[in-house]
């Protein structure tokens, strides 16, 4: 019961789609390729951001948490390097330095609750749709409704509680200080996760 024939067909479809998008815009095609890679790798390694933050406390497992910390650490290093090189060459990147407010905290908590109930965060929902889960297809519908509601009310949150501009840590601490602080914090979290894992297994 191999799905090899279907796979050949789908591979051809992906190739055609890629060529079609490349005709419209080479950059979009490149992005599509990277997106495909991200989905492929997430599925293959069963990477799950939800599991990484949920499972340490719920089931006492921190393998994915440690993997997420590694992913964050490598991304910090990569982003820093890219921004440095970009500065030297006059390329600017718009990084995700978002404004900070009460709604950051409220939104984070609601997001955390939602992803546990829906069985995947935003990227996890997309990945599981690819895997064929009906539940996450429904969750995507909910996600779209919720996003629209958020879009319509975020101005209200800003108006009632105010908002502070996002803090780009290197502006305050310098690049060196920022890297030390961030890697230090991640290392601390990693040690904590490892200790927690051993404690759970030891019991």
């Amino acid at each position: 019961m191999s799905q090899r024939k279907l796979n050949i067909g789908f591979t051809l479809f992906m190739l055609l789609l890629f060529i079609l998008v490349a005709q419209l815009s080479p950059k979009s095609a490149l992005i599509l390729g990277l997106g495909t890679g991200l989905g492929f790798v997430m599925q293959k390694s069963r990477f799950c951001f939800t599991s990484a933050v949920r499972d340490p406390l719920l089931v006492g497992m921190t393998h994915l948490t440690q993997a997420l910390i590694l992913l964050i650490a490598l991304s910090i290093a990569g982003f820093t390097l890219i921004v440095w090189v970009g500065e030297a060459r006059g390329i600017s990147y718009s990084l995700n330095v978002f404004p900070l407010g009460v709604h950051t905290l409220v939104g984070g908590v609601l997001f955390g609750i939602g992803m546990v109930l829906a069985g995947g965060c935003a990227s996890g929902v997309l990945m599981r749709i690819g895997e064929g889960f009906g539940m996450q297809m429904l969750a995507l519908g909910g996600l779209l409704i919720g996003a629209l509601l958020g879009k319509l009310t975020v101005a209200h949150w800003r108006f009632v509680f105010g908002e502070w501009p996002g803090i780009f840590l290197p502006d305050k601490l310098g690049w060196f200080g920022t890297l030390i602080l961030e890697f230090g914090a991640l290392f601390g979290l990693w040690m904590l996760a490892r200790w927690w894992q051993r404690k759970q297994v030891g019991e």
């Binding site: 409220v106 939104g107 984070g108 908590v109 609601l110 997001f111 955390g112 609750i113 939602g114 992803m115 546990v116 109930l117 829906a118 069985g119 965060c121 935003a122 929902v125 429904l138 969750a139 995507l140 519908g141 909910g142 996600l143 779209l144 409704i145 919720g146 996003a147 629209l148 509601l149 958020g150 879009k151 009310t153 975020v154």
Partner: peptide, 10 residues
């Protein structure tokens, strides 16, 4: 979960 997540994320 989807609605909470979408709202929170935005």
């Amino acid at each position: 979960g989807g609605v909470l997540m979408g709202y929170g994320a935005r």
